[in-house]
Design a protein around this nucleic acid. Structure first.
Lengths: 144, 144
DNA sequence: TTCACTTGGTTGCAAATGCAACCAAAACAA
DNA sequence: TTGTTTTGGTTGCATTTGCAACCAAGTGAA
């Protein structure tokens, strides 16, 4: 079992990190320019949007790979803006169930065009469809 | 000029983000477990290690894609630990030249095995050499 | 039942980040 | 020269993150 990466592996690693920070920067600055909240808000709202009956907090945390205390306060902010609601969970007295509100969905709709455009500019337009598929497959192997 | 990404593009995008956060988590927790400083320290030190005559602050910032105020304070921390030194630049009276110290290099050496192992586990061992090369090429197209 | 252990979530405090204003040296123009 | 603009870097303040301690409900064992 080889424990030291090859040059190529290091190169791929470094490039992924770099691409990620570039993308991050592009997205956040586009959102800010459009006077919209940060990307994390979009992620939470999208997860909730997909689930008619909302999600438990820990489920959101798992999906977003976010530590729980962090998520707890992120939801505080979203709740303060009335984008989500927390209601105490019927099935488990400790936890609560988080639901997206109508204005949460509206925000999602306003954010998508901005976000989508960046995705297209940074990724969609730079690779062919075949390359995108290859990339997606390779990244899939790296997950989990 | 198409401005909305395809499903495949969105999938690839989302996977890259996810892979990145997973990697990040792996690295940081491995470093912490070995009682070592965060990854950003490694990045700075490595850049400096490669340049015998050090780097200007803004050069480090460009390489790391870090906003200048952020870098300024990161260097404060490194300097406080005597891992780098700032000396006023001879060629430009405003700026300064940053150099790695002997103990900076030592730290670099202590960090690499930990970092390298994570790279190998998260990337090197999960793809074939050919796949790594393909990935590196695709990511290269996405840079800049 | 009782007592320990785990799990879901929150909170206080310290450290890191983002933003905008700032300062001084350099570059440029008149 | 003087005045203006740009550039390299720092600092103050607000927001966000990370860590550890905490609380209360659930689980499980004796």
């Amino acid at each position: 079992m080889n424990t030291t990466p090859t040059e190529q592996t290091i190169a791929a690693w470094a490039r992924l990190l770099r691409v990620h920070t570039q993308w991050q920067e592009q997205v956040q600055s586009a959102l800010k320019a459009a006077d919209l909240p940060p990307l994390a808000w979009y992620d939470v709202l999208l997860e909730l949007h997909r689930k008619r009956h909302g999600l438990r907090q820990y489920e959101i945390g798992e999906r977003m790979l976010l530590p729980k205390h962090n998520l707890s306060r992120l939801l505080d902010r979203l709740e303060k803006e009335a984008l989500v609601t927390r209601r105490t969970s019927p099935e488990d007295g400790r936890g609560n169930r988080v639901l997206i509100t109508r204005s949460g969905r509206r925000l999602l709709q306003r954010m998508w065009p901005v976000y989508g455009r960046v995705i297209q500019e940074c990724l969609g337009q730079r690779l062919t469809a075949a390359e995108v598929t290859t990339l997606a497959k390779l990244l899939d192997k790296l997950q989990q």
